[in-house]
Amino acid sequence: MLQKAPRRTRERILELSLRLFNEFGEPNITTTVIAEEMNISPGNLYYHFRNKDDIVNSIFVQFEAEIERILTVPETRRSNLEDVWFYLHVTFELIWRYRFLYRDLSDLLSRNRKLELHFKQILNHKTKVARQLCEDLRGEGSMEATDAEIDALATNMVVVATYWLSYEYVRNPRKYNEQQAMLDSLARGCYQVLSQIGPYLRGDTRLLFQKLSEEYLKKLK
């Protein structure tokens, strides 16, 4: 049988660092802690990464590549409510996988110029996609909203999605990393974002929104 090649030390450092940053917060983890958890010398770690910011930036490159892949809308048809629902789910799942970037966002951006510039681009891209989704719903007659209302909706959807995990952390920091708490948090986040467009929906799409909302609210009780 073919044996799977062992992961390179650099990849293992990134994987471990992401887990530690997510569980304990990036400001609370040093390169010394990472090296000790890896059971390698600090010199070995510095061979692969100059400092902790270098590790953070490398993780961010992975995150950026993944979010660019999911920040898309259908090219051959207008988006519908199921597309919006799916888009929110995969976005929140990715945010959770890299949750330290969002929980420690202000601190990271205040001292990392690269992250500041690139995160602005991601927010702009998210807003553009949210606006396109709303415009598609309006185009197929499922939504009644002016251009100004859609602009406000797109911005609000991105704001809630971006800061949702910070809000959840403040609500219950001791259960933040528990699996069930995570699943409930993602569900609440999806619902809160989608609920913003609910009042603008019409016809069968409005009925579908109500059905989906009722199902989610039952799960969260």
Rank of each mutant, 00 (worst) to 15 (best):
L2I: 12
L2W: 13
L2G: 07
A5H: 08
R7D: 12
R8F: 13
R8A: 15
R8T: 15
R10H: 05
E11M: 04
E11A: 06
E11G: 13
I13L: 12
E15M: 11
E15S: 10
L18A: 13
L18C: 14
L18I: 12
E23A: 14
F24L: 02
V33M: 02
I34E: 06
E37Y: 06
E37R: 05
N39Y: 05
G43S: 01
G43W: 06
L45V: 10
Y46P: 05
Y46Q: 06
H48L: 12
R50C: 00
R50D: 03
D53Y: 08
D53I: 10
D54H: 12
V56P: 00
V61N: 10
E64Y: 06
I67D: 05
E68F: 03
E68V: 09
L71D: 13
T72Y: 11
V73F: 13
T76Y: 13
S79N: 00
S79K: 08
S79Q: 06
L81G: 03
D83C: 06
D83A: 05
W85L: 10
W85F: 01
L88N: 02
H89M: 07
V90L: 03
T91P: 04
T91F: 04
F92I: 12
F92Q: 08
L94C: 08
L94V: 11
Y98A: 01
Y98N: 00
R99D: 02
R99L: 09
L101K: 02
D104P: 04
L105W: 15
S106L: 15
S110K: 09
S110L: 06
S110F: 06
L117D: 11
K120H: 06
K120M: 09
L123R: 09
N124L: 07
H125V: 12
K126D: 03
T127C: 09
R131G: 04
Q132C: 05
C134D: 07
C134L: 08
L137H: 01
R138M: 04
G139E: 08
E140F: 13
G141N: 07
M143C: 00
E144D: 15
E144A: 03
E144H: 02
E144N: 11
A145T: 03
A145I: 03
D147V: 00
A148P: 12
E149D: 13
E149Y: 09
E149T: 06
I150P: 05
D151A: 09
A152V: 05
A152E: 15
L153W: 01
A154P: 00
T155C: 07
M157V: 04
Y163H: 10
Y163E: 02
W164N: 09
R171P: 07
Y176M: 14
E178H: 01
E178V: 04
Q180G: 11
A181Q: 10
M182W: 10
L183W: 07
L183D: 09
L186C: 11
Y191G: 13
Q196Y: 11
I197A: 11
G198Q: 14
P199F: 05
D204V: 12
T205W: 04
T205R: 08
R206V: 06
L207T: 04
L208K: 08
L208V: 04
L212F: 09
S213H: 13
E214D: 15
E215A: 08
